[in-house]
Nucleic acid binder design. Structure first.
Lengths: 194, 194
DNA sequence: GTTTTTGTTGATTGACGAGTCAATAGACTT
DNA sequence: AAGTCTATTGACTCGTCAATCAACAAAAAC
């Protein structure tokens, strides 16, 4: 049966399975066997392609970050003007694709991973820098000198809204999260700037 | 050597050691032996007093939550007027006792634990409810109908600021965190209410 | 002064999991 | 058609760790 060119397919399946399993179990205590089983292969094959469990986790992290980045970029592409672009970033952050229980659970556990695995820390730092930079570009024309503070606060607020989703039961309420973030924005911009 | 009345002393030592170890390692992957060793006893004794590893973790969580609660209550006791009380809550949240690397690391991992252990989830929910309630009492006279939204946002912001501390290197910057939270508050209150 | 209760540990058990390896099999190369 | 490469797995190794237990020691109770 061995077809050729399986590597990318298997890797993608493993990455997807990893996110699912982390979300399901709610921690990084998922075995390579569990992941491999869900991805429809033996654990030996998972090791064959990734080498180690940490590499599997990192690949899953890169995938989540890539998806998020792509979503933001896509949303920014069709938004004109600073306010619209800010709204686009928020919408992407809490979009149906990213703001799912399993993905949120994965994010939380990536923060844990970042405490141990330097590469994980680096990846999260890249995410935070990019978010801040995106926010700053939009905020400078709107908030002027205060752009920096507002970006800092908004970034933390987004992370906090994610974190709080972890404790909720039932489906994630993206609308409420966006509303809270937009409210923060409104009040920051109307209070001073324009 | 067996002196009597060891139980509370041993338990307290284990709880303290648990927080330290979780903070040091950066995850819940700490062995009972590690904890017991740091607390100066054998792992068997840890099991003797707590029964299971989960119970040790929960006791550590209750301790962190209790400390936080006590700090907030103490700060509120000497604050008069809604604004001062809000500031007191924020100061307590980012006080030197709570906003330490190891404690922040412990908080993060308690969120992870909450995904698996129902009692952990309950404890965190209690914390969130109490925080919201405290904030609401102060905010109602200041923000009126908007008190609810502001409390929601401020709660998430605090959690987010904690979360972001995880990635930073170097000693925690409590002053910056308080400043961001106060800024949010300022702008929410000046923007509308008074 | 014997029995019971509390404190304490080293050794052991039993389970589980990451990573390795030998072996099998189809596909592509020459 | 022989050799090489990719795909794949079951079985195995080796380590780790939570939890238990038997045993010992000292204080309290009777």
């Amino acid at each position: 049966m061995p077809k050729l060119g399986m590597e990318p397919i298997r890797k993608a399946a493993l990455v997807k399975a990893t996110i699912s399993e982390i979300g399901r179990v709610g921690s990084l205590d998922v075995t390579v066997s569990q992941i491999a089983k869900r991805a429809g292969m033996s654990s030996a094959l998972a090791h064959h392609y990734f080498g180690s469990k940490d590499e599997i986790f990192l690949a899953a992290m890169r995938h989540v970050l890539t998806l998020y980045g792509a979503e933001v970029r896509g949303a920014l592409a069709v938004a004109t003007g600073p306010e619209a672009r800010l709204r686009a970033i928020l919408a992407a952050s809490f979009s149906a694709g990213n703001f799912r229980r399993e993905v949120v659970g994965a994010w939380l556990n990536f923060y844990v991973l970042a405490q141990t695995v330097p590469e994980a820390k680096r990846l999260l730092a890249v995410y935070q820098r990019r978010l801040r930079s995106n926010l700053l570009v939009c905020l400078r024309p709107l908030a002027g000198a205060r752009a920096h503070e507002v970006a800092e606060g908004l970034g933390a607020l987004i992370d906090g809204l994610y974190l709080r989703e972890v404790l909720k039961s039932g489906p994630p309420d993206a609308a409420a999260a966006v509303a809270t973030a937009l409210d923060y924005l409104d009040v920051q911009l109307k209070g001073r700037g324009a």
